[in-house]
């Protein structure tokens, strides 16, 4: 460490007096920076204030302020004739959410979010389990990067890749044809709700893309939970005569549940709020995110868009509360 010039007078003061006169506490550092340093060092509260003020002001004003503005707008309404926003308090905008068409949108989105969450938990479990229990050294690193890369790589590119895959003339149709399974694909597409003209305009397609895009968010927390399960538990279970599925049902699954709950918070919340995936791959029936987007954009009904946006916040609040009540966070 290079001694600062401000410490020189301190040294002189120290050597000047007799041992009896020497103060127990070093004299302050000289100069503006020195005084500032002493202030920071002596009073932790002052340092804390300095550290916290910029980020808290930024997030508090820009983020919380905006959320508050959103909440405020949802209590306004729109004049049906002029299309102008009326700036006085009303609950009628929230009332509109309960119209059958809007209620449909909410139910559809929640169903989609639930099925995506369930499927991603099923797909994620083996990957997470293998990475946590069996992968060592290089394989561990490979699995880690193998999950991190898709997690972080471009969201739009991932969606785009699936547009290529699901297109009528795309690789999936070709693959089914090569395997002589075209009848299976056609049969699936002719099913009432989940089918459609091609996979890229059906709920099945939307579901697949959601599953693909959010899967890594499920793997990481499950893996973290499974890393903490001692191998001896599983050995004890099988020594005591449990079949593998019994070990899974009574040991592994309960211990992985906090991880699954944490992952499901991501998959559920992200599906609830997404408006791009159902717009690019899917039927023309709306999801909550799309409803927000069209209401504030083409329809110009910002109060209704704001009210729609409050729905995922409430659902997520309820979801988090349930997860907490079930003790899902205790192990995290």
């Amino acid at each position: 460490m290079v001694a600062s010039s401000s410490s020189v007078p301190d040294g002189a003061a120290m050597s000047g007096g007799s041992p009896a006169e020497r103060p127990a506490i070093l004299p302050g550092r000289g100069g503006f920076f020195g005084a500032f340093s002493d202030r920071v060092w002596r009073s932790q509260g002052f340092l804390l204030l300095l550290l916290l003020a910029p980020p808290v002001l930024w997030l508090g004003i820009i983020y919380l302020g905006s959320l508050f503005a959103l909440l405020l707008q949802s209590f306004f309404s729109i004049d049906e004739f002029t299309g102008l926003i009326q700036y006085h308090f009303t609950l009628s905008t929230y009332g509109e959410l309960f119209r059958p068409t809007n209620l449909d949108i909410i139910v559809r989105t929640v169903l989609m979010a639930s099925s995506v969450t369930l499927a991603s938990a099923i797909l994620a479990f083996p990957v997470a389990y293998f990475a946590a229990r069996y992968a060592r050294g290089k394989w561990k690193a490979l699995f880690y990067i193998g999950v991190m890369l898709p997690l972080w790589s471009s969201y739009l590119v991932k969606v785009y890749a699936w547009k290529l895959i699901l297109a009528k003339e795309g690789i999936l149709t070709w693959l089914f044809a090569k395997l002589h399974l075209t009848w299976l694909l056609d049969g699936w597409l002719s099913l009432p709700i989940i089918g459609g003209y091609s996979l890229s305009v059906s709920y099945t397609g939307t579901f697949l893309v959601f599953l693909y895009v959010w899967l890594p968010f499920m793997i990481l927390p499950i893996q973290a939970a499974l890393e903490r399960v001692p191998g001896s538990y599983l050995e004890a279970s099988s020594d005591l005569g449990a079949q593998p599925w019994q070990t899974f049902r009574h040991i592994l699954f309960p211990l992985a549940l906090p991880g699954i709950a944490a992952g499901s918070i991501f998959t559920f919340s992200l599906t609830l709020g997404d408006y791009i995936i159902p717009q690019i791959v899917g039927s023309s029936r709306l999801f909550i995110g799309q409803a927000v987007y069209t209401q504030q954009g083409t329809a110009g009904n910002i109060p209704l868009a704001a009210a729609f946006a409050v729905v995922p916040i409430i659902i997520m609040g309820f979801y988090l509360w349930m997860a907490k009540r079930m003790g899902a966070f205790n192990a995290l």
Binding site: L67, L70, G273, Y275, G289, Q296, A305, P312
Partner: peptide
Amino acid sequence: PGIITGIA
């Protein structure tokens, strides 16, 4: 969800 940050 990002859309909430966005619309807010």
